[in-house]
Each structure stands twice: as C-alpha cells, then as structure tokens.
Amino acid sequence: MNKEKYLQDISEIKDLMNKSSRFISLSGISGILAGIYALLGAWYAHWIVNFEGNGYLTLHGNLFKKCLLVLIAVGVLSIGTAILLTTQKAKKNNEKIWDPTTRRLLFSFLVPLVAGGIYIIIMLSQGRYGQSGSLMLLFYGISLFSASKYTLGYVKYLGLTEILLGLISATMPGYGFWFWVIGFGIMHIVYGALMYIKYDKK
C-alpha cells in the first residue's frame, strides 16, 4: 500500500515538474488545420500561376503580390487558429496560457524565424527567389527545434523534418513549391494528427 502511494506521489511530482517546465497545451487540431490551410493556399497559388501567368511568376508582377497575399493569409489563419484552440485547451485543463515557460518558448521560436524572414525578404528584394521555399522550410524547422525544449517532443521531430525537407529542396531547384507543400501542408497534418491521438483525445 505504502509502495503504491509512494509511486503515485512520484508520478504526481513528475507531472507537476513537467507542467512547470513545458508548455503542454498545444492543440493537435490547430496543427491539422494549419496543414489544410497550407494545402488550400498552395492549390490556389498554383492555380493562379498556371491560369493567369501561364506557369511563370515574376517578382515584381501583380501575380507575385497575389501569391504573397495567399502566403500571408495562410500564416495569419494558422497563427490565429493555434492561439484560439490552444487558449481554449489551456482553460479547459486549468493551465496558464502566459507564463515564463510560454515566454521562453516564444523567444526561442521567434528569434530564428524573424531572422530567417528578414533574410528571405532581403534575397527577394535582390531578385533571388529561387531558394525562398527551401529557406522558409529551413528557418521554420530551426525555429521549431529551438522552441521544442519548452514544449512537447513531437515539435522537435517536426522541426527536424522541416530542416531535412529544406536541405533536400535546396539541392533540387525547381521543386521548392512541392517541398513547401509537403513541409507546411502534409507534415503539419501528420504532426497534428499524432498530437491529437496522443494528447487531445484523452
């Protein structure tokens, strides 16, 4: 009896330590929806490039601006959905959404992401946009891996996958769009589904 209580106490202490050092309210559904947004955005961008631009995209044309707006819309929808669903999950589990762990997570995530975003914008302004897709995957993967120590383990593996896809994409010019689809679309759906099955479904 004492042994069982001892083991239970250890389990509770471990759980409390895990909660205090990791942000565990991430929503698997938000990952799935982010992947769906990315696939829909990629489909629409691919359609307008082929329909309006005959398969060609120039940096300073209206078509590029449309594709950029689609990319921004996908990002805003994904971030907004993640914030909404994660906040709801945190409230349901009686967990704080904003604490030192969350701040450390965001700092670790945003520093490489913002630096990468600025670098990509500089490259685009110089007319060098051939590797933009692979760079997006690479910096996003680095951001996820950097932040993963403050949240659930699946985030680390998603980050490593994005980094690998970015590196492979860099070696295969002309296929960046499809690697972008795999990384931001399909892999987010896979990651979100795994998160949902392991954590949310309970």
Rank of each mutant, 00 (worst) to 15 (best):
L106M: 13
R104G: 15
S132A: 15
Q126P: 04
G117W: 03
I120V: 15
R128Q: 12
G117L: 05
L110S: 09
S132N: 06
G130F: 04
Q131D: 14
L106T: 09
S134M: 02
L105N: 02
S108F: 05
F109M: 02
G133E: 10
L137N: 14
I121D: 12
G116R: 06
Y119Q: 10
I120L: 07
I118K: 07
Y129S: 10
V111G: 03
G127S: 06
L124N: 12
G116Q: 03
Y129N: 07
M123D: 15
V111Q: 03
V111E: 01
A115C: 13
S134A: 14
Y119C: 13
S108Y: 13
F109V: 00
L110C: 09
L135C: 05
R128Y: 14
P112E: 05
F109Q: 01
L137Y: 11
R128S: 12
V111F: 05
M136G: 15
G133N: 14
S125Y: 10
Q131Y: 12
L105G: 01
Y119P: 08
S132W: 14
L124R: 13
I122M: 11
L106I: 14
V111Y: 00
S134P: 03
F109T: 01
I121R: 08
G130W: 06
R104D: 07
A115W: 14
G116Y: 05
G127A: 04
M123W: 10
S132F: 12
A115D: 10
F109D: 01
G127V: 00
Q126L: 13
L138S: 03
I122W: 11
G127F: 01
L137A: 12
F107A: 00
G117A: 06
F109W: 11
M136S: 12
L105S: 04
I118R: 09
P112D: 06
I120W: 12
P112W: 05
S132T: 12
F109N: 03
R104K: 15
P112N: 09
L135P: 11
G116S: 03
F107W: 02
V111M: 04
F107M: 01
L105Q: 01
L138V: 04
S108M: 09
S134V: 05
P112S: 04
L138W: 07
A115K: 06
L124H: 11
G116E: 06
L113H: 10
G127M: 01
G133A: 09
I121N: 06
F107V: 00
V114P: 03
V111N: 04
S108A: 15
G116C: 10
V114E: 13
L124K: 10
L113R: 04
I122R: 10
I121M: 08
I120F: 07
Q131L: 13
L110Q: 01
G130V: 12
R128V: 15
G117R: 07
M123T: 14
I120T: 06
G127K: 03
Q131E: 14
I122K: 11
G117F: 07
Q126V: 05
S134Y: 00
S134N: 02
S108V: 01
V111R: 03
F107Y: 00
P112C: 11
L105E: 00
R104M: 06
L135N: 08
